[in-house]
Design a binder for these strands. Structure first.
Lengths: 128, 128
DNA sequence: AACGTCTATCGTCGATACACGATAGATAAT
DNA sequence: ATTATCTATCGTGTATCGACGATAGACGTT
């Protein structure tokens, strides 16, 4: 088994958004996906992504992960005036929209931005 | 009184998003706001805008208005498999997020994209 | 004035979101 | 093996969403 186990949005019967084919590549490599080299999201994906961002706390969480490149759940809990379970729930929603990706690193989970989906979101919004 | 009365999102105690100073200009002029000449949305505005778009029906309504430049409520109702009151409710949500603007034209209401806020949204998303 | 048309709002209902505490599972340390 | 730590999930309660039909207000027409 690999030392770090990638956690994607495969639970809860939600696989609407295509996940990056993780396992073969480092999930948090942040290769700075160019906007015009990704396909835009289809409407259900776009709705899910914008819905996931449609909450001030989740926008803040997303920004925190983005500026730190990678982030542990506990760090986010420390930054936010919310219970650990609440933060974990917000992370789940961002994860199921494929906006972020989590890697289980020993006892903790490290999150990073899914650059490919973010680029696709940017392109989709620009095309509105 | 002016022949066309602009309807903005001033009701329901919601004026979080700054409205274009309508009345002095044609609301649906679509001057193609350049993205880098508008201020990005602040986080509550961004959350409200993305939340408003976070629904497949509202994305569809937004696209319909955008491609027709201007659109009557009844046209949208005719295009969608939803009750008139439901469509009107979706329009209210888009309106309160300032993504669209409505003008009362006699007995009907004509909607158009709020280009300034759309440009600000695009910029805000690009900066993520 | 009375009527028909168009659309926003109201009231209702079930489903979903959002917060929390409690619990459980995995891992590292003792 | 036991313990401690970290985080996801479960169960709960409240609030908001998303749909609808019914209603009301504004306007044009007769």
């Amino acid at each position: 088994m690999s030392p770090t186990n990638s956690i994607t949005s495969a639970q809860a019967g939600n696989e609407a958004l295509p996940a990056t084919k993780a396992g073969t590549q480092d999930v948090c490599a942040t290769p700075e996906d160019p906007i015009d080299k990704v396909d835009p999201l289809d409407d259900p994906e776009l709705a899910q992504a914008t819905k996931a961002l449609g909450n001030p706390t989740r926008i803040k969480i997303f920004r925190l992960i983005a500026e730190r490149q990678t982030c542990i759940t506990g760090e986010l809990v420390a930054e936010l005036p919310l219970a650990q379970s609440t933060v974990s729930e917000h992370l789940r929603i961002l994860r199921e929209a494929n906006l972020i990706q989590g890697e289980i690193e020993g006892p903790r989970t490290s999150y990073c931005i899914n650059q490919r989906v973010l680029a696709a979101l940017k392109r989709s919004i620009l095309e509105l």
